[in-house]
């Protein structure tokens, strides 16, 4: 059987999910025999290849217009889309701002912050505008596989990728299904 192609991207997230991915340690050698990593935040290629990949992995929630575009792009180019981590699956900690007005959040963070002097809300054409609500990936595009956890354990990530490489659709259960830090 040939290798499956995989692309990953992080959206609104802390990078913890990608760190947990690296925690599969030496098993990554085994994985690379079955998987070809195309684009990822850790490689030169940042966007999934135009011709598409077998598996797309999104970590993080969707909270600005760029992230919406990235989520859509990944969906279009991946046959299987995995939402990985509590932020991608549920919205996670990023949704904390949904309880407040978007502009109030920006002012609190950039102007009123206790450690800030003469702050101002950043504004530039290269900065993507925040959406009104932070959403989970599943609220934005259809998702095939959900892997919650903050972050998901290396074992759970290993399981999901292994199943996909073997041509099966993973469904994390029992010890591999954990929310928050409960898997740690």
């Amino acid at each position: 059987m040939g290798k499956i192609t995989v692309a990953t991207q992080w959206l609104e997230a802390c990078a913890g999910c990608h760190m947990s991915f690296l925690d599969i340690d030496e098993r990554i050698m085994e994985l690379l025999k079955q998987v070809e990593l195309t684009s990822s935040p850790l490689t030169d290629l940042k966007h999934p290849p135009q011709e598409g990949v077998d598996v797309g992995i999104l970590t993080g929630a969707v909270g600005n217009e760029d992230e919406w575009a990235e989520a859509r792009e990944m969906r279009e180019r991946a046959r299987f889309l995995v939402a990985m981590g509590d932020c991608a699956v549920f919205g996670g900690i990023c949704t904390m701002r949904n309880f407040f007005d978007r502009d109030d959040v920006l002012i609190r963070g950039y102007v009123e912050n206790e450690s800030t002097v003469d702050g101002q809300v950043p504004c530039h054409e290269d900065l993507a505008p925040l959406t009104r609500y932070v959403k989970s990936v599943g609220e934005v595009v259809p998702v095939d596989v959900y892997l919650p956890g903050c972050p998901p354990s290396a074992d759970a990530i290993w399981y999901v990728l292994g199943e996909l490489a073997a041509g099966r659709v993973p469904k994390p259960e029992r010890e591999l299904l954990k929310y928050g830090l409960d898997g740690a």
Partner: peptide, 18 residues
Amino acid sequence: YCMYCPVSGDCELQELAY
């Protein structure tokens, strides 16, 4: 969001969801 809940891991609701 269990990640910042003090009973995560010992919660009856969470256990049922699992």
